[in-house]
Simulated scan of single mutants.
Amino acid sequence: METLRVGFARGLIEFRHTLTNAQDLWGYFFPSFGLLITLFFMGDATVPGTDFSLGASTLPSSLGMLVAFGGLITIAQYLIVDREDGTLLRAKATPHGMNGYLIGKVVSTGGMTLASLLIVLVPGIFLVDGIEFDAGGILTLLWLLPLAVVATVPIGASIGSFFDNPRSFGLIMLPLFGLVAISGIFYPIAAMPGWLQAIAQIFPIYWLGLGMRSAFLPGGFAAVELGDSWRHFETFGVLAVWAVAGLLLAPVLLRRMARRESGSAVAARRERALNSMVR
């Protein structure tokens, strides 16, 4: 309980610090502005073969993408940076420090993800027509958002454990952008080839987009989805599988990563960073 309390307090402090940091605020606003501009230029575009608004479909899909990125990318980026500057080593050296560190990152990542969602959602509902949010949508979000965090954050932490250099972060971003392109976020997945549909349905980004669409769109929109339904049971099942896999894998990989951390390793990474800056 003490570890939970310290980790939760650490996460809140880190989240408050991001709200006073210009670079972090730019990280919130820039992607959100990009999504809003995309929605604006969609104008009166419709989903191919229907009279449904493409903007209305894209807005909740984008929210699902932001949730996925918050869990998969943000915590991985934290781990990479904190390994280089010695933060992770200091956490390892304190009693239950790694547990408190990870709890804090989950809390701060959740806060940043929620802020990003609100930045897009609030102005977005004034840019597109067709958004509906009722009691059923609220109930969907109550199980979807917690499950999304559990399904993505451990996987993001596992990915981050393999990298110790912030300059290698592009190796994480490029595959994720590829998944976004085939996951029905900006274009209906039903219009894509069957083999791309099969690949997209393996990963959580598609299912988070689908779940968000089911929460914010009228039931008629389900007609343009695969299977002509919101597939809530399948969404829950796939995300639950990813959550279990991440919870089993992440502790093993993080313990292995922590064992490798030492003062000499941190000093060597700093030396490499300084040498690259000099060049």
Rank of each mutant, 00 (worst) to 15 (best):
74 T>P: 01
186 F>G: 13
129 D>C: 05
22 A>E: 03
8 F>M: 09
107 V>T: 07
162 F>Q: 02
141 L>G: 14
144 L>F: 09
206 Y>W: 14
77 Q>I: 06
98 M>A: 10
84 E>I: 00
5 R>A: 06
2 E>D: 12
68 A>E: 13
57 S>G: 07
178 G>D: 01
239 L>I: 04
43 G>K: 14
211 G>T: 13
154 P>V: 00
13 I>F: 12
270 R>Y: 08
110 G>P: 03
232 H>A: 13
54 L>R: 10
145 L>I: 15
76 A>S: 12
78 Y>N: 08
46 T>A: 07
250 A>P: 02
55 G>T: 05
41 F>Q: 07
171 L>D: 02
194 G>P: 00
129 D>I: 01
232 H>S: 13
194 G>E: 13
153 V>Q: 06
240 A>F: 06
180 V>R: 15
255 R>P: 02
17 H>S: 14
188 P>S: 04
109 T>Q: 15
82 D>R: 12
85 D>T: 06
202 I>D: 03
276 S>L: 15
237 G>R: 08
111 G>D: 07
35 L>F: 14
219 G>V: 13
21 N>P: 03
129 D>R: 15
86 G>E: 08
243 A>Q: 03
88 L>S: 08
10 R>I: 00
129 D>Q: 15
28 Y>A: 01
246 G>H: 08
236 F>T: 15
262 S>Y: 01
140 T>R: 15
182 I>C: 10
92 K>N: 09
1 M>E: 09
21 N>L: 11
117 L>P: 08
193 P>N: 02
201 Q>D: 00
168 S>Y: 09
186 F>D: 02
67 V>K: 00
51 D>I: 01
173 M>F: 01
9 A>E: 13
52 F>R: 10
95 P>C: 01
224 V>C: 00
252 V>K: 11
142 L>H: 09
202 I>Y: 00
229 S>M: 04
141 L>W: 12
129 D>Y: 05
180 V>N: 14
25 L>D: 04
165 N>W: 12
183 S>M: 06
